[in-house]
Amino acid sequence: MKNVGEAPAEELATGERSTRNRVARSILDHGPSTVADLAQRLGLTQAAVRRHLDSLVGDNVVEAREKRVYGARTRGRPAKVFALTDGGRDAFDQSYDKLAVEALRWIERNAGGEAAVAAFARDRIEAQAEAYRAAVESAGPARRTEALAKALSADGYAATARHAPVGEQLCQHHCPVVHVAEQYPQLCEAETEIFSRLLGTHVQRLATIAHGDGVCTTFIPDVPQGAEADGDAPDSGGDGDPPGACASDTPQTASSTASASKAGRNPA
């Protein structure tokens, strides 16, 4: 991550800037977080966390939001969470978004339209997927999603895996190409396709950061015994809707999730 803002020499000498970057990185890896969450994860006092958060807010790296409440609201003021701003996300990458968008636009106009962009996206993710494939194939069937999450994290996606009703969710808290994917969702679609092949089952993209969601969420349904070997993986577009997107500050509504699940195109 690039250091954000100017820091006096005495701050650098005492490690203040390093700790501040750890706070921002923890929010990147785990999503919007309370002061108590950050203090527990980083082994800091809540007072120290608040001091670093004040500096990060001043540098426009993080912003305070009201925590979303699911289910019945309890008494008292909702807890405050801190989330990365767009500038804060950008600070973790030295990206060449403008150049990438211009290159894809040239491909689209001069080398075959949307089909050419889709072919580029598939070729790009195939090259990345070699490391992912090795990680997934070395894991047992019950650990494949977790293994894929770890491999994605090594590539900067800050991914986690969690259990969900009738399956699992792959949650990517960061996307290094988000600004390009906002204009070219073929990047997200190719990624979803490769996840399906790596995990040996139909998967379903429920949310993407490029589409304005807080987390990229991919639902991986349970594969019935013997279905994978027979090439008969379940289609989650059948009876019932898949579970909602990974918990974030911008959850999808039931109607938008259902809409995404039935659309032929990923929601990015």
Rank of each mutant, 00 (worst) to 15 (best):
P8Q: 02
E10I: 02
E10P: 01
E10A: 02
G15V: 01
E16L: 02
A24F: 01
A24S: 01
I27M: 00
L28R: 02
Q40C: 01
L53A: 01
D54E: 03
D54G: 03
V57Q: 05
G58T: 03
N60Q: 09
V61Q: 06
K67Q: 00
R68F: 05
R73K: 08
K80S: 01
V81H: 03
F82V: 09
G87N: 14
G88A: 06
F92T: 05
Q94G: 12
Y96W: 14
K98T: 14
A100F: 12
L104H: 09
W106T: 13
A111H: 15
A116W: 10
F120C: 11
D123K: 15
D123M: 15
R124Q: 14
Y132H: 15
A139N: 12
G140S: 13
L148R: 11
L148M: 11
A158R: 07
A159N: 06
T160W: 07
Q169V: 11
V177D: 08
H179T: 09
H179C: 06
V180T: 05
Y184E: 06
E189N: 08
E189M: 07
T201A: 03
V203L: 03
H211E: 15
C216D: 07
T218S: 05
Q225H: 12
E228I: 11
P234S: 06
D235Y: 04
S236P: 12
S236R: 09
G238A: 14
G238R: 14
D239M: 10
P243N: 06
G244N: 09
A247K: 07
S248M: 03
Q252M: 10
S255L: 12
T257E: 08
T257I: 13
A258E: 13
A260L: 05
S261M: 13
G264T: 11
P267A: 04
